[in-house]
Amino acid sequence: MQLECKHLNFTYPGSDVAVINNLSFSMKNPGFNALFGPSGVGKTSLAKLIARGNARYDGDIMWDDMETILYTYNLERLPGWSSTGGHLSKVTPPGKEGLKEHLVQVFELTDVLGSRFSQLSMGQQNRINLIRYLLQEFDLLILDESLANVDEKLRETIILAIKDLFADKMFLYISHNLMEVSKFCRQILVFGKPSENKGCFMISGQDYQNKYHLDKKKLDLTMLEIMNAF
């Protein structure tokens, strides 16, 4: 399983400024990886290109051993005509009911399955949305700030559970949380600020798994490395 970009350039139609400029990187093997950087540097644009959007770009994106790529973002909504539990059941493929029950429990959503989507808090909305994607068949799942508005402790629980339950899948996590990305991601593609003409850097994260032992020194070093990169 490999995701590789070579000399990728992308400019939105009608714009003169390239959002992605000569980007090359490679991510190998299943795991939890990240795109990190300030707002407006092209993280979401890159994610959409990777997810095989229809936009035209220069350069190459290569997906090795990846059939299904899904992209999810934090503003998605579920239809409001029935309960979130009802929707979740409808989109759960046969044989994955057990996984659904488990995810609902880990994501702490058992009590809100009878509620409509509009009645949930923003954090709950993002969690229920993420669950329905995790229940689908995929090789690469891109999470664009999918855990926004979720408290830090639960976010950690969710990320560790995802890493545990989907060890054979690749994830691309877009987040603005430096600590979280440094702790849980294996490869971190850091986007530099375009105004300072910094390129993109691939940095190795701590890739903590369940029941990890925190090595503060190593974590600080990773965070420092990321901060220096953008």
Binding site: A51, L70, Y71, T72, Y73, L75, E76, R77, L78, P79, G80, W81, V91, N129, R132, Y133, Q136
Partner: peptide, 24 residues
């Protein structure tokens, strides 16, 4: 888009569902 995206990328979108979402 915020609602339809999931159904499109997972191949579940049908015209009846599209009409239902937009009408709702």
């Amino acid at each position: 888009t915020d609602i339809e995206h999931f159904y499109i990328v997972t191949g579940r979108m049908r015209w009846q569902l599209e009409v239902k979402i937009r009408a709702f």
